[in-house]
Design a protein around this nucleic acid. Sequence first.
DNA 1: ATGAAAGCGCTAACAG
DNA 2: CTGTTAGCGCTTTCAT
Lengths: 342, 342
Amino acid sequence: MARKRRGSGKPTIMDVAREAGVSAITVSRALRTPKQVSDKTRTKVDSAIRALGYTPDPAAKALASHRSDIIGVILPSVTNSVFQDTLRGIYEVAETAPYRVQLGNTQYSAAEEERLLRGLLSQRPAGLILTGVDQSASTAGLLRGADFPIVQITEIGPAPFDMMVGFSHSQAAQLAAEHLVAAGYRRIAFLGARRDARSTRRLSGFRAVLEAHGLYDPGRVLFSEQPSSVPLGAAQLGELLDMDPKADAVLCNNDDLALGALFECQRSGIDVPNAFGICGFNDIDTMAVTHPALTSVRTPRREIGRQAMTMMLARLAGEDPGPTTRNLGVDLMPRASTARAA
Amino acid sequence: MARKRRGSGKPTIMDVAREAGVSAITVSRALRTPKQVSDKTRTKVDSAIRALGYTPDPAAKALASHRSDIIGVILPSVTNSVFQDTLRGIYEVAETAPYRVQLGNTQYSAAEEERLLRGLLSQRPAGLILTGVDQSASTAGLLRGADFPIVQITEIGPAPFDMMVGFSHSQAAQLAAEHLVAAGYRRIAFLGARRDARSTRRLSGFRAVLEAHGLYDPGRVLFSEQPSSVPLGAAQLGELLDMDPKADAVLCNNDDLALGALFECQRSGIDVPNAFGICGFNDIDTMAVTHPALTSVRTPRREIGRQAMTMMLARLAGEDPGPTTRNLGVDLMPRASTARAA
DNA sequence: ATGAAAGCGCTAACAG
DNA sequence: CTGTTAGCGCTTTCAT
């Protein structure tokens, strides 16, 4: 045994080349750009690969090409249900392609986002999907002129780094607020959990509409330090009614808060929708089956994920991704929880 | 310009070595095994690293060492709420360590699990966390004698590949079934969504208890092709009462089914708990705030994730991971939905 | 405690 | 369409 043999035992591209009677680079090309290899050669290479059970080594590929097969996906929270559907859409499309998704959690922190991004950049990602439009200046600096595709998701705004797919959170909240006003509610509150850029934009949409009707009262806006949850919604509804017993409706920044609010009303014997209206946000599938069913704003979360990854893959394949900024819009889903007898 | 210069422009370990006046290998050791380097040298290296803004290249490291910094995490579903909490626990601990989590979705398919595992193995993972104890024979073949730590999570069973942390699903269901019987229900049904190994084990626990009391009726066991959801629970409750109008309680295989069942009872005017008892499984935080509050079996999902990753990191650091097979147990959380007047 | 040389498995660059 | 050569940035091996 020669003393310098460090091989892993697994077949390498050289083994395949030998077996097929060609050079290593030809195997490499047969794998990456099959069109540049003759049919005959490709067939020989393919069967050599199968015969040996060859699998390319991603580390060697990344080292030699300065490009990994990693698509970074940076989200505020990997485990928040709001991002579940988006993540599902991302994975559904990603699983059809030869890339790996590398997830990162910012925990709603711009500093953490930058830290994650730096870690990702050291891996020379093939592409990046990230959330929102509120990156810090130094994060933006790292991203401007990046040599890989970038998709910003969930929101839309001016000056994308590259591509963008989402909807206007302010408009979405306006739609809900208009609905509550039109339904006849007058003392409408806003419940939110931990405040972030998107919830702030939703509040501003809500506020604009209520002010236009002369109905806005900052005393009926509640945020929390806690993450969004059903118990929080229940607690906040109690708090609201302590502060303003005459409040007659809530726009909840998240469906789970709306669910909690509904349970609290049931417990307190408050008549929904006649004495009190409830509107959620996102329209998770639970909303349609509660009793009474809950009004919500349907957001295209899964479609955002699907389209983001589809655009990404098109770019990576050198194809036309189509429109690079996409506002997917939202739909109001009026249900019993805001259908007042009049 | 020499024509063969392919460098990435980023500082390499050689640049650091030059700056610090040492050799590349010394920089490498200062980074990986600081104790093997003198204080003086380490200081010089550290400041050179800072001066240059050096970041190690993970691909080069993986190629040279035959070991990446990837910890694979293979779950049936990345976006199923049941695994959210486990995933959160995993990330909470992982984020403290210099490893990357690489997620994989089996979509409840053993074949997909094997495919994912093969992809992961080509990356020479530092470790692997995977779900359950029902791997296919060929998956097991790939894992027996693997040269990295493995933790199986969510279930416990005989013959772990390496380490294991979870609970007995059969025992958990027994606990719930005993509770329903003790509460005075007699025509107890079982609602489940898509059937997998764990739901099958829960059913067997349920069945064993009911049979011991002479109460088991297979006509009151419902499964579905669909994934678990609140609307499914509502639909299944309707189906159950069509088939057996005298059914007087359900053990739901998942909390979302129990929620759906509750809403359906509210809609139909069925008195919970006096006319009908409902028990869920997992005890998500919503259960405590519904009206009436829902009984459930609390499962240690987050703790499973935390302990799995903690054991993993201990192994990777060459430390003692403590007990390598851990049954974390479950707790019955009795609430109003099964508190019959008597 | 530190270093020199060789090599990990692959692809970029250039050539034919 | 195919091949040769020289690296990518790091760690292993062996030596001092």
